[in-house]
């Protein structure tokens, strides 16, 4: 199964809005909760209450500072999980076939019973989207919640990834990026959705919506200036204006 499908019917993936992500880590923990209890081995934690706690997570939220040429530095919260690449190097390097990309929807998965835990797939992923589970010795990665999105035991509205369902800010979107008419595709088109490390040639399915331009309130000054034209310079003058203005109100004397 290590070969990549020629093409997939659908390209299911996530669209992450960097303009609204507040960096709350809700998606991180929800993912940990769902995937500990569901698909494959639980996501274990080593030294859980000790000096060097370290566990398996399939989704992690970084944060970056961006210093534009002019103006104040900005901060961007940056969630990252598997991007379900079309040209997924993690699949082709896998010697056992445990890593594969599903032909029907493009989801990249690890079949844990075939995985020998060699780690090569994680080496090959430029995004750091795979983590070896230290208790189980198998490779873990975002499953795009495959056991939710088709799950007939869940109400239809809940057949979305756990991280998407939980995101309080609504910064995560799930859908078929192969369908230009899907909500996610439209979002990507509207907001200029981008690829991470396009030069790696992995063709990620997941897209990131860039932050909108910031700190531009002063650019509007000329337009806004008339709004602030003083009605009077002195408190006395102000009261005169007030009297006239009140007259113009419904029920005023005028």
């Amino acid at each position: 199964m290590t070969q990549l499908p020629q093409s997939t019917q659908r390209k299911l993936g996530l669209v992450i809005d960097l303009d609204t992500c507040v960096g709350c880590h809700a998606c991180v923990i929800s993912c940990k909760g769902w995937n500990t209890e569901n698909y494959g081995a639980p996501l274990s934690d080593q030294d859980a209450y000790g000096a060097d706690p370290s566990g398996t997570f399939l989704n992690r939220v970084h944060s970056y500072e961006v210093q534009p040429e002019q103006g104040a530095a900005q901060l961007v919260h940056f969630p990252k999980s598997c991007l379900h690449c079309e040209d997924a190097p993690c699949v082709t390097v896998c010697p056992t076939g445990a890593s594969y990309k599903r032909a029907e929807d493009g989801i990249v998965l690890v079949n844990e019973s075939d995985c020998i835990g060699c780690g090569l797939c994680a080496w090959s992923c430029p995004y750091g989207a795979r983590e070896m589970d230290m208790a189980e010795g198998v490779m873990k990665k975002c499953t795009l919640c495959i056991d939710r999105i088709y799950n007939e035991n869940l109400p239809e509205i809940d057949r979305i990834p756990s991280c998407v369902r939980t995101c309080p800010a609504g910064a995560r979107h799930f859908g078929d990026l192969a369908d230009p008419e899907s909500d996610v595709s439209k979002l990507v088109a509207e907001r200029g959705g981008m690829d991470l490390m396009p030069e790696m040639g992995t063709k990620p399915v997941n897209k990131y919506l860039p932050p909108r331009p910031k700190d531009r309130i002063e650019d509007q000054v000329d337009v806004l200036a008339p709004l602030l034209a003083p009605v009077a310079e002195e408190p006395q003058g102000f009261l005169g204006w007030l009297d006239k203005a009140l007259d113009k109100l419904p029920g005023g004397r005028a």
Binding site: T20, L75, R212, K214
Partner: peptide, 13 residues
């Protein structure tokens, strides 16, 4: 400028 303030369109520090 973190959290909510990071996503704010304008930041008043």
């Amino acid at each position: 400028r973190s959290g909510y303030n990071a996503v704010a369109d304008d930041w008043v520090g």
